[in-house]
Design a protein around this nucleic acid. Sequence first.
DNA 1: GTCTATATATAGATAGAC
DNA 2: GTCTATCTATATATAGAC
Lengths: 190, 190
Amino acid sequence: MSSSESRERVLDVAEKLFSTYGYATVKLKDIAKALGMRQASLYYHAPGGKEELYLEVMRRNMQRHRQGLEEAIAQADDWQSQLQAVAYWFLSQPPMDFTRMIHSDLRAVHPEHAQHLIHITYEAVLQPIEQIFERCQAAGDIRAVDIKLLTGAFLSLIQAVHSVPQQWTNRSKEEMADEVLDILLHGLTA
Amino acid sequence: MSSSESRERVLDVAEKLFSTYGYATVKLKDIAKALGMRQASLYYHAPGGKEELYLEVMRRNMQRHRQGLEEAIAQADDWQSQLQAVAYWFLSQPPMDFTRMIHSDLRAVHPEHAQHLIHITYEAVLQPIEQIFERCQAAGDIRAVDIKLLTGAFLSLIQAVHSVPQQWTNRSKEEMADEVLDILLHGLTA
DNA sequence: GTCTATATATAGATAGAC
DNA sequence: GTCTATCTATATATAGAC
């Protein structure tokens, strides 16, 4: 295995754990264990320690989201398909809990790093979705609502679907996302 | 100040911190500092230590939610007012992050305690809301959807409003909740 | 690249003075 | 009721063998 491959593997494992359980909950020992190595061995792959590892993980994560969302949106022809494509994209990725990220995880890193992460998160995730809504609001496809609020609501709906324990239902996440999207577009009373 | 009053104050402060930042992120030192005392002094009020304090906080929290939701629902005359009353109730309370609770916080406590907390959370919070939706689905006020999914979606929308930083907007949380509720009921395309 | 051993820092918990 | 001092446990980080 090449050096960059094994590094990717470390980042993959760390990302999954950090995304699922949060910065403070995940110990370096947990990451090492998931990789089948000792805690100290992690420092060969991540000499910067825990905080630096978390930052690299998040930077790579946001980079991937930006790319993935861009492609998902570009390949869909109408705005409703774009929203569905965005939803499916997030379901294919490790869960992203904004609330926990802002309130918990980012408090543990140096303020200037937190600031930067918030910035790239906005550009990678919030902005592409806002732009979908802005376009279809301008085209008259949806009514006048607060776009930032709508974007936050949309994301929290998707992530709620993402974190439904698989045992509570026998439906796929995509099916649930479709149902939630349908409610968002046409309402409960339709 | 009576003994039970000062105990309530400890629980209030601990609840606010645990609810906002999560179990692992909040250190006993943080709670003590917010109370204006030293970390060791906390053990006078919470002899059981951190985990026991967290459990007491959550038990009391769920008890209060059950009561508060019951009253909010009972005082509203139609189902739409009930949903609004439920939303306002949650906005008046410390934020409740189910995702973090299940994925992060509960992993830190003994499994039997975690199990119990999940159970009382379901009874206190999920069940009352499910019942609203079941009633209005039976009455034909809303169309056929997965009630559990809808309940989760509703809650995550409210909490999303709750965790919008106040500086991002000049609108009140209640206004935002009204807008989100309106979208949920009538859809984006209405 | 991974290990053991260990140093250092932090968090949780206890003892006893006041 | 709160304090200081301290113990213990845990987590992060480093050193050096293999």
